[in-house]
Amino acid sequence: MEQHSLHLYDCTEKVISFYSDMVYRLAFARTGTKHDADDVFQEVFLRYVKKKSLFNNEEHRKAWLIRVTINCSNNFWNSLWRKKTQELTTDIMFETEDSVNLYTELQKLPAKYREVIHLFYYEDMSLEEISLTLNRKNSTIRTQLTRARALLKEFMKEENYV
């Protein structure tokens, strides 16, 4: 996972390239389909360009992109048009059966749990950081993470709970 970041006054192209995987993977975690993740991905970076503001530091920019990815995914998820037209299918061909099984189990979770799982296990964010980023209480995040783990119990056998 990329731990390093960019310079604050880097060009937009560099920023998009650098954060492309982070935004796309979070969008996919939240929406569950490649088609939807594609749309959210474009929307996030268009908002980034329109925002035009400088960020205090790289963590600020990263947190902003995570927050906007979640917001865009929420908006997309809630849109009436989407509810009527999209089926929950993925076009991503996973390489192993384990990944296919994990994807199937993840899709059974509420989207809110999936985003918490993603930020905790993939972005290595602490409960406090997730709480600040998603603007939810620390206790709510902890509960959502615990419930998500319980629902993913087959994959969590060796996992230490926080």
Binding site: A37, D38, H118
Partner: peptide
């Protein structure tokens, strides 16, 4: 789970065209 989930995510990337 963390390793499994990381491997899972490494298979998810935006297309070059996108």
């Amino acid at each position: 789970f963390r390793e499994q989930y990381t491997k899972f995510n490494q298979q998810v990337s935006p297309d070059k065209n996108l």
